[in-house]
Design a protein around this nucleic acid. Sequence first.
RNA 1: GGGCCGUUAGCUCAGCUGGUAGAGCAGGGGACUCUUAAUCCCAAGGUCGUAGGUUCGAUCCCUACACGGCCCA
Length: 470
Amino acid sequence: MDFASLPHRFGERDAIGDLRTAEDGLEPEQAGTQSWRIAGRVLGRRGQGGVSFIDLEDMSGRVQLLADLEQLGEETFEQVRSVSIGDLIGVVGTATRTRRGELSVKVAEWIELAPCRLPFPDRHHGLQDVEVRHRQRYLDLMTDPEARDRFVARAKMVASIRRTLDDANFVEVETPVLQPLYGGAAARPFVTHHNTLDRDLYLRVATELYLKRLVVGGLERVYELGKDFRNEGVSPKHNPEFTMLEFYEAYADCEDVMTRTEQIVTAAALAVCGTTKVTVKDQEIDFGVPWQRMTLGEAIEQKTGINPLTLGRDPQPLVDYLKSQGIDTSRDKTWAQLVDHMLSHYVEPTLIAPTFLVDYPVELSPLSRRKPGGEGLVERFEAFCGGMEISNGFSELNDPDDQRARFEEQAAAGRAGDEEAHPLDEDYVTALEYGLPPTGGVGLGIDRLAMLLTAQDTIREVILFPAMRT
RNA sequence: GGGCCGUUAGCUCAGCUGGUAGAGCAGGGGACUCUUAAUCCCAAGGUCGUAGGUUCGAUCCCUACACGGCCCA
């Protein structure tokens, strides 16, 4: 094919899926009357002398083309006969069903649209090389309908989440990706440089602090769906850039946003799967409300026999326990880090059905509001499902003095070597000084939810272009 | 960051713990007028991830590195 002579458009195109539905009633050797204009990629080719069969696929489905030498004449038939697997072509023709019963389109016009110049992957086995599937995702999508379905499902999930929030009068906003100061999550940031301003900027690790500034400003219900960036390792559950939903709701507390989280996820499951029941790691789980709830302390106690939240802030019993189980505690410098370690080691992998853990220690939650009655707890939850954290939310701390004190504790932890500690954000404290209403807020990991709703056990299968070494 | 496993034709895979590599598909040529993993014939296709080392001889054994995967941190 000579590119210069190829058409620039193929208008008034019919979807192959629509054709299949409309012509499904044809009997073998019966011809339809309607003329169809379809286009797509050639995925199969079978010659039989003066008859050629082509498999053509578009986004909506696949159909067989039937080309007849006598009907097309030698020149056009030769074009059909010599098409390569992978070529993009358009066809005009009527439907028919072959003697063998295969719904087909009898080619009347044959329009070459774009060639595939490189050898096509094996069409029986598909692409097996995980590295190639990720680096050249277009090949994965071309050859594996399930891969396409997965990303369509993800899009449906995101659309459902937007719908749920929009219907509840949330305003979708966009806040800076490039931030002079990062915050809102315990994570190491990426650093970049602005040439004209001649200053370093951070890629956001969360949208939290900007969104709460907007609530201070009077946007009482806001959400943002976008990429966060965390400078940490890649794993089946981690990609350095990932998609996060955060929403904030004024005049609501932790309990309210837990309920809303259930509502959002249940609706998304229905939108993607048509049911709230999905199969994760060979186990059926039900996103239907209400989800299980227990306190963090109870959850740890269930697995270890120790409830660290009833033992004061003494790290020693926790160190003793973990060491007795052969676990390396050398990186856990504080009581709070030990609790976190116990949570992620003993509890998180076992939480398959959707579960809320509540009552987190204040040391792990520098932006959450304290639980009345003290005990060093905050009004916070994390939601787990499929053995991983999918969501985190709380009653937002709106006391500027307490917030400043928490930031200062974080800064001290940072000086002591905690690379994930929050830096002090003066402007955020200033915003709180103007008055943040009582507010509940949530972060929800979109990639992880997509993993659950599409039954994938690695995040790379729900991210189109996952991070790879160059 | 550490441990283990993997890397052979464009794709999917064989290759006997040492004697310079094979098949199917795709791509090229041909036959075939209802095939559907079409079939049949012909030809072509390789720096065996990279670089060293051991050896008369390395896809195979050893070392380092690259990339990927799993587990641990």
